[in-house]
Nucleic acid binder design. Structure first.
Lengths: 167, 167
DNA sequence: CTAATATTGAGACTCAATATCAATTGAATG
DNA sequence: CATTCAATTGATATTGAGTCTCAATATTAG
């Protein structure tokens, strides 16, 4: 498995600098509110980690976050990243994509992004996002049929991407 | 979430003892063919492990497989189970359900069972299997569109089942 | 400012999963 | 049947992601 797997994300939202700034502050505020409710604090490190995820163009794992953050804050520790990412998942701002099959879970920001699912290459770790409105439609139909109330879902297809033919 | 969540499996195939025997041998043959193609061999241990999964009525993890298999073959080792389960996943006979989030991956036999996905109730932990051929169809279409070779997939919908209205 | 509490980073630790390796098994061949 | 050679096995060592501990530090309330 390649260490620096390329990741294909959906095109970023077309956002003006002004809108982007607004977005950053909205997400930060959401995090802060969650922390406040838990009696926790928004520290410099927690803010840095969230900002790093928000400015990333791809899915980052803990190790990648660690080396990126080290550049601006050489004292940051892995444990803090693990702890913060856990908090971000708890408050719904971040989701884990994949698992040990693609070299450890990677994290993506959920806030204000269109829904998509993932194809994960077990050879190179590449994560490809894809949309299928028809698939969603029949999924919703199945959910209704079972009288289920969906809160969130995880749909990950594991296999080989087009650049990783069977060895 | 309840610890011992009830698991709703699709109704077992109505199979006569004769049909069941036939099924066992068909699945074994599939495994053997896969192994042959890879230059590998169907050994006693590999057969035991597959048979154990085929006779289980529930999802088993590595540790459960280990203790079950020890009864008939006290010399079997964990490493062999890890290796064999990996092979079974590679050839599509077995799928991993869940992950470290719900107490370690468990394995279910896919062979000759209709494909299904899971709806997981976050209130009562109930796991409901469901089918949607149309959904599968559009999923396959998306996979083809991206030149991906799917080995397995994980589609889990989290929410509330019909018996767990919002509190 | 001070006190109380939360947070941090380093490093020890855990434990599932993998790699190593000598001994064994299995199939293929003569 | 004996031989050969690659595949397999189980015990063990190793890895590595993730967690825990704890003394030092930062934050907030008053």
């Amino acid at each position: 498995m390649t260490k620096n797997a390329e990741v294909i994300l959906f095109p970023k939202h077309a956002r003006s600098p002004e809108q982007h700034k607004q977005w950053l502050s909205t997400v930060l505020q959401t995090f802060q509110e969650y922390l406040g409710k838990q009696g926790l604090k928004l520290t410099r490190q927690r803010e840095e980690i969230l900002l790093c995820l928000m400015s990333a163009e791809r899915h980052l794992g803990v190790e990648e976050l660690y080396s990126l953050l080290k550049k601006k804050d050489p004292t940051i520790g892995r444990a803090t990243i693990f702890r913060t990412v856990k908090l971000l998942q708890e408050c719904g701002l971040v989701a884990e994509v994949g698992s040990h099959h693609n070299g450890g879970g990677k994290f993506e920001l959920k806030a204000d992004r269109p829904h998509h699912d993932h194809m994960i290459c077990v050879e190179c770790g590449r994560i490809t996002e894809f949309q299928s409105p028809m698939m969603e439609r029949f999924q919703d139909e199945a959910i209704r049929r079972h009288g289920f109330t969906a809160l969130w879902h995880r749909h990950e297809i594991f296999g080989r991407c087009r650049n990783c033919p069977k060895k």
